[in-house]
């Protein structure tokens, strides 16, 4: 099995083993409406790939196909070389290796912060309680919320909730993290704390796929930037290149609106 090296890796050096995520000719339709129209996409191990694009362009759908929260209509999705559309694949096992962070946090409101972090460790990873608590505390400290372990989600600000959600995903010791607009539901003054945690994760070498509207984050933290529009990847490359000198006219039109 491909092991993930937690030390920071330069993108150029990430050729060992299969890509963390590889998507080939992915199509996805909701009823009559085709939302993804043949996507080819990959994230190498240790790479941080940011995905931008107008609302409704299919960014979330692509992200959700990676851990099969959405069922692809056709095409291949490989996670660490394993075809997750294969009915033989143990999907729950693969999912424990893919952390996911949602726009709306989706913390479990009936459970304390600590229990939010230990539940899936015990239920899905079959860890003992003591071990789960220890790992949870370590990750809470990492996102700067060690003092909140007894709080309930409703008692936290949006920014704190999202950091708890990140800590919850990290507590499964995933090989990669998916972020779906993690700061879009936050008040502007709370965005920075969350981005800081994500930046720290990237520095530690975490493989990350980030759907975002934060162009600053994409430029400074991302190894590669992917621009999607109308269910296709229109343009991708080095973030500074794509943001500073977009080649495609749809990219130019989009960036002129958001920058």
């Amino acid at each position: 099995m491909a092991m993930h090296n937690p030390a920071h890796q330069a993108p150029a050096a990430s050729t060992a083993g299969p890509p963390a995520i590889e998507v080939r000719n992915l199509h996805k339709s909701f009823g009559e409406v085709e939302v993804l129209k043949g996507i080819d996409f990959h994230v190498d191990q240790g790479e941080v790939v940011c995905v931008i694009g107008p609302s409704g362009s299919g960014k979330s759908t692509l992200l959700r196909c990676v851990n099969r929260l959405e069922e692809p209509t056709s095409g291949t999705v490989l996670v660490e070389g394993v075809d997750i559309t294969d009915p033989e694949t143990d999907l729950d096992l693969v999912r424990t290796r893919i952390g996911m962070v949602f726009q709306q946090f989706n913390l479990f409101p009936h459970l304390s912060v600590l229990r939010n972090l230990t539940l899936a460790q015990q239920r899905a990873k079959k860890r003992g309680k003591a071990e789960a608590v220890e790992i949870a505390r370590k990750n809470l400290a990492k996102v700067g919320l060690a003092h909140k372990e007894d709080a309930f989600p409703a008692q936290l600000s949006g920014g704190q909730q999202q950091r708890v959600a990140i800590a919850r995903a990290l507590s499964m010791n995933p090989d990669m993290m998916l972020f779906d607009e993690p700061t879009s539901a936050l008040d502007p003054e709370l965005v920075g704390d969350v981005l800081e945690v994500m930046r720290q994760l990237a520095d530690e070498g975490m493989t990350m796929m980030v759907v975002t509207h934060e162009m600053g984050f994409a430029r400074e933290v991302g190894d590669r930037l992917v621009f999607m529009d109308g269910g296709v990847v229109v343009e991708q490359g080095d973030p500074r290149e794509v943001l500073g000198n977009p080649q495609h006219e749809r990219t130019q039109a989009f960036l002129s609106k958001v920058l």
Binding site: L107, A124, A165
Partner: peptide
């Protein structure tokens, strides 16, 4: 909310 199920399933829970 369906997001609750999605969160649990994304963590690998059956």
């Amino acid at each position: 909310p369906p997001g609750q199920v999605e969160a649990a399933r994304s963590l690998g829970m059956t």
